[in-house]
């Protein structure tokens, strides 16, 4: 769930019960049907605005929180090539956050407010970043598979109806495709390396398998559907469809390298749909509600960054004795 909307029963009820001016709504929906993009100043239903803010904001948070587990490996990257690639990659993720906060701001919520809501727990970020990056092999798994999963989600979302989000996603997907290449290169290097490297990679893969299944959100059977979000092109594919697309693209690549996945039930059915063992959705719920291995730490780091540097932002905003002495 990068920028993926999953609704609780209560939220779905509010959304479906919302009432708008019928004429404006009709014109709005006709535009979307024609494939037009909705732009910031245009009329839009309140619920459209609300769900988009929530989705883009969550996506932006995922980018900047997602930079943390990888960021800790920049100083430990094993050579120049990996080090330079990893700094650039993590920098891109921060840049994506910046771009997405700007896209969300066009809908009327400030970046500061979004960051405060992240710290208070009011708004979420992708659950996958609540797991630790224990070894260098985690960089390969994250770079290849977490980024791979994110691309599946982001390419779909880039076909949505809100102009600023789509344009941000087009650029993001372009950069992500390079991330995927560096992740894949690292992944293949470890998979075809020494026994120590291979064992590291397999161990990391075992740990990340379940969070990767969780990535696209709960099964369609257990999610609240909203025809409105589909009609408004806010949500464009079901969680299960995206998950299946991911498995179909990446499981063969993992097997090709002689690696395994820790799920005896995982196989592709005759209907082209992947079946997998129960990924423990209770764990997913626990982690998303704050009880994962790294939830507290991730938020603490963001809190440090926000609060310890408040003086910098305030000083930049309030130049109370600006250039008291002539510059030349």
């Amino acid at each position: 769930m990068y920028g993926n909307t999953s609704l609780t029963a209560e939220e779905a009820k509010v959304l479906n019960a919302s009432v708008e001016d019928p004429q404006k709504l009709e014109a709005f929906e006709a535009r979307i049907t024609r494939g037009e993009k909705i732009e910031p100043g245009d009329w839009m239903p309140e619920q459209y605005r609300k769900q988009l803010i929530r989705m883009i904001e969550q996506h932006a948070h995922s980018e900047i929180v997602g930079a943390l587990p990888e960021g800790t490996w920049i100083t430990r990257a094993p050579n120049f090539k990996r080090k330079l690639a990893l700094i650039a990659k993590v920098q891109d993720e921060i840049g994506h956050g910046q771009l997405l906060y700007s896209a969300a701001e066009t809908l009327g919520k400030t970046r500061e407010q979004m960051l405060m809501d992240l710290l208070s727990g009011k708004s979420k970020y992708s659950n996958v970043f609540n797991y630790p990056a224990n070894t260098w092999a985690d960089m390969a798994v994250i770079g290849f598979l977490v980024d791979g999963a994110a691309i599946v989600n982001q390419i779909i979302n880039s076909k949505g109806s809100y102009g600023p989000y789509c344009r941000a996603l087009e650029r993001i997907c372009y950069e992500e495709s390079f991330h995927l290449k560096q992740g894949h290169d690292n992944f293949v290097y470890l998979a075809t390396g020494t026994p120590v490297q291979r064992a590291m990679l397999q161990e990391a893969l075992n740990r990340w398998y379940r969070p990767l299944l969780h990535f696209f959100g709960p099964s369609d059977r257990d999610s609240q559907h909203s025809e409105k979000l589909m009609k408004w092109r806010v949500k464009l594919a079901s969680n299960d469809d995206m998950r299946n697309q991911f498995l179909d693209q990446y499981v063969p690549k993992i097997y090709e390298l002689g690696l395994t996945l820790p799920d005896p039930e995982l196989k592709k059915g005759d209907d082209g749909i992947w079946v997998f063992g129960d990924p423990d959705w209770d764990e997913f719920k626990r982690v998303i509600n704050g009880d994962g291995p790294c939830n507290k730490e991730r938020i603490e780091v963001r809190r440090y960054s926000e609060l310890a540097h408040r003086w910098v932002r305030e000083a930049l905003l309030n130049p109370n004795e600006k250039y008291a002495i002539p510059m030349a």
Binding site: A67, Q91, G95, Y101, V312
Partner: peptide, 11 residues
């Protein structure tokens, strides 16, 4: 990277 005073400074 990731902990600057604002995103622009991280970058």
């Amino acid at each position: 990277t990731g902990i600057g005073p604002m995103l622009e400074e991280d970058l």
